[in-house]
């Protein structure tokens, strides 16, 4: 149990915690938009930390064992970039589709978009 392991454990537990939080938020929030808040932000943040843990793991193997493990590190990094780019865009697409298909935000105090579409 050296400091690599400790850092990995910390990152993994943060990642697991926020992914679990996403599921709880998804079940507790009242409508599509607030659920998107939970579903997008928390899973993205959780996945960043899971990927960081795997990157640390790969870097340690890369340094102490062989160059072959560089693939593990770099491919995990590419997967992380893909998730970071695609997640918010997907959330935006779903939010727009939900609003255009007529789902109203629950308990909303203001809805500017409806005013614009109503014109």
């Amino acid at each position: 149990m050296d400091w690599w392991d400790v850092a990995m454990m910390v990152f993994l537990s943060i990642g697991a915690f926020f992914n679990a939080l996403a599921a709880v938020g998804l079940l507790r929030f009242p409508d599509v938009y607030t659920r998107l808040h939970a579903g997008t932000k928390c899973t993205t943040f959780g996945t960043i930390f899971v990927c960081l843990a795997v990157i640390l793991f790969g870097v340690r193997l890369w340094i102490y064992e062989s160059d072959a493990y560089s693939i593990l590190t770099i491919h995990t990094f590419i997967a992380l970039v893909c998730v970071l780019l695609t997640n918010p865009t997907g959330a935006h697409a779903i939010a727009r589709a939900a609003h255009r298909s007529g789902v109203k935000p629950a308990r909303a105090v203001i809805d500017e978009l409806e005013k614009k579409e109503g014109k």
Binding site: L21, V24, F29, T34, K41, R107, I110, D111, K116
Partner: peptide
Amino acid sequence: VAYRVITGKIKPGIVK
């Protein structure tokens, strides 16, 4: 978000 998931305090709206 963690705070709002646990306490359930929300005041949503769509602004421009």
